[in-house]
């Protein structure tokens, strides 16, 4: 699909691409150290992300124990088809993200670029589904969080609580997707400039890790919100 050949092993003239000339930071002893440190830092950041969402999961667990019927009703209001579609979209984007890293590792910049763009488009699709097929119809029906709730056909007293948790958890997740889109967009831009190659792909790897965590959280949110009743 691409006319540009992998750069590995290729004898090439012309100016060096940025990724071939990247130097280590002045305080590092080796580039490997820098790479490992970057990844460790990212994993620690992912730990904070998990704990951030654990607050929402904890709220969900406690409120579900208190008001099981409200949560059963709540999941019936959500359409599993849209949730499932979004799950698939995120899974595919996770795959393309991992593939982009793999292509970069072997020096196939063009395919990596394609994979990144697909990832970005998947993220966009996720958000569009979320916004136009979930948030806007539900909000206009009156299925809103907390005191904004105005849905006359509710069957349980605690449904506003369900919507609070629904909007809080999916909203915070969606904000992560938006941030992820920004980061992937930045990757696409930099990759076009030739910043990433077999010896310099830490940023891509870390953003990939971030993107997989976003996917991971959705893997749990999807059954909790859409499937269990």
């Amino acid at each position: 699909m691409s006319t540009i050949q992998p750069t590995r092993g290729e004898i090439r003239t012309g100016p060096m691409l940025p990724h071939e000339t990247v130097q280590k930071g002045h305080h590092w002893r080796t580039r490997d150290d820098e790479f490992d440190a970057g990844k460790l830092g990212m994993w620690l950041f992912l730990a904070t992300e998990l704990l951030l969402f654990s607050g929402l999961f904890c709220g969900y667990a406690v409120m579900r124990l208190l008001y099981p019927e409200a949560f059963a009703n709540g999941s019936h209001y959500l359409d599993w088809r849209w949730g499932g579609l979004n799950t698939l979209v995120l899974l595919v984007s996770s795959y393309t993200m991992a593939a982009a890293i793999r292509h970069t590792q072997v020096g196939d910049r063009a395919r990596a670029q394609m994979a990144l763009i697909v990832t970005w488009l998947c993220a966009l699709a996720f958000l569009l589904v979320k916004l136009f097929l979930e948030y806007i119809p539900k909000w206009s029906e009156g299925k809103r969080p907390g005191v904004l709730f105005d849905y006359p056909y509710a069957q349980h007293e605690m449904e506003p609580m369900w919507w609070s948790l629904y909007y809080a958890s999916t909203g915070i997740h969606a904000s992560h997707v938006i941030i992820g889109m920004g980061l992937i967009g930045w990757l696409i831009y930099r990759n076009a400039k030739g910043w990433y190659g077999p010896k310099n792909y830490l940023a891509m790897e870390n953003i990939g890790l971030y993107w997989h965590i976003v996917d991971l959280i959705w893997i749990f949110l999807f059954p909790l919100l859409y499937l269990i009743h």
Binding site: L66, P145, G146, V147, P160, M161
Partner: peptide, 11 residues
Amino acid sequence: FNFGLFDPRIG
């Protein structure tokens, strides 16, 4: 928005 998680008025 009076989310309700910690608000006894909403449960």
